[in-house]
C-alpha cells in the first residue's frame, strides 16, 4: 500500500533508490490493546482536569447542526442554543482528532488493518465477497466510486445517518456512553452499550449477508 509522507520531510535512501517513507514508520500499528486502551482512558481525566469537561464526541454533531447558517425558523428547537458557549471546547477537541489522524498517517503511516485481523474474520468477510484486505478499510465498499452504488450509499450515508440519529437519541456514542458513562458507573449507559451491540450484531449477522452475499 502506498504510504503518504510530507514531501522533503522523510526521505530515506535504500539500494533501490529514493523512496518516500513516513518518518516514524517503526511505530506503525496495530498498537496492542493494553497500550491503546489505557491511553484512550486517560482522555477522561485529561478533559475533567483541564476544564471539568466530560469526554463525548457525538455532541459535536449537534453543535455543527446548530452552527449551520440557516434561517432560525428552519431550526428545530433542539438546535437553538448557544453552541459557541457550550460547544467550542468540544469542536476544538475534534479538530484535534482530525489533525491527529492526519499526523498519524503522515508521520507513521496508515496501518493495514485488513492484514492484521484474525483469520476467522478474514474468511467470513471473504465469504461475503470482500477481496481487498490491503488497507484500513475494504475499498470495494468504501470509496467515491462505490458511493454511487446502492450498497455503498447505504453503508456510507445510511450508516452515517443512523450514527448521527442514534447517538443523539441515545444521548451519546461510544465515547460518551461506552467510555465516559461506564467509567462513571451509569446504568443508562450500560443499557445504551447493550443497544450498540444489539444493533451491531443485527447488521453483522442479518443485514450484511443480505446486501453483500
Amino acid at each position: 500500500m502506498r504510504r503518504a509522507g510530507i514531501a522533503g520531510f522523510a526521505w530515506i535512501s535504500t539500494f533501490d533508490g529514493w523512496i518516500e517513507r513516513p518518518m516514524f514508520e517503526s511505530l506503525a500499528g496495530p498498537w496492542p490493546w493494553y497500550v491503546a486502551g489505557p491511553l484512550i482512558g486517560l482522555v477522561v481525566p485529561f478533559l475533567l482536569l483541564l476544564g471539568g469537561k466530560v469526554f463525548g464526541i457525538s455532541a459535536n454533531l449537534r453543535h455543527m447542526c446548530a452552527a449551520t447558517p440557516t434561517p432560525e425558523r428552519w431550526k428545530p428547537s433542539f438546535l437553538k442554543y448557544d453552541w459557541k458557549k457550550s460547544g467550542v471546547w468540544n469542536l476544538t477537541f475534534i479538530l484535534g482528532i482530525f489533525l491527529g489522524g492526519f499526523l498519524a498517517v503522515q508521520l507513521i503511516g496508515m496501518p493495514d488493518a485488513g492484514q492484521h485481523i484474525s483469520e476467522a474474520t478474514r474468511a467470513d468477510l471473504q465469504a461475503l465477497g470482500i477481496q481487498d484486505f490491503s488497507g484500513i478499510l475494504p475499498t470495494e465498499l468504501f470509496s467515491w466510486e462505490t458511493l454511487l452504488s446502492p450498497v455503498g450509499l447505504f453503508l456510507i450515508v445510511g450508516g452515517g445517518f443512523l450514527v448521527g440519529f442514534g447517538a443523539r437519541y441515545a444521548g451519546g456514542c461510544t465515547s460518551g456512553h461506552a467510555i465516559s458513562g461506564l467509567a462513571d458507573l451509569q446504568l443508562p449507559s450500560l443499557v445504551a452499550v447493550l443497544g450498540f451491540f444489539a444493533g451491531g450484531l443485527l447488521v453483522t449477522f442479518g443485514v450484511l449477508p443480505l446486501i453483500l452475499g
Binding site: F142, V163, G200, V207
Partner: peptide, 26 residues
C-alpha cells in the same frame, strides 16, 4: 437510540470520533 446507533456503527464501521480521525487521515 443505542440500537439505531449500533446499526449505523456496524454499517459504517466508524463511530463519530473515528469519522474525524479517518477524514484527517485522508
Amino acid at each position: 437510540g443505542g440500537t439505531l446507533f449500533g446499526i449505523g456503527w456496524a454499517l459504517l464501521g466508524a463511530c463519530p470520533g473515528p469519522i474525524f480521525a479517518l477524514l484527517g487521515g485522508g
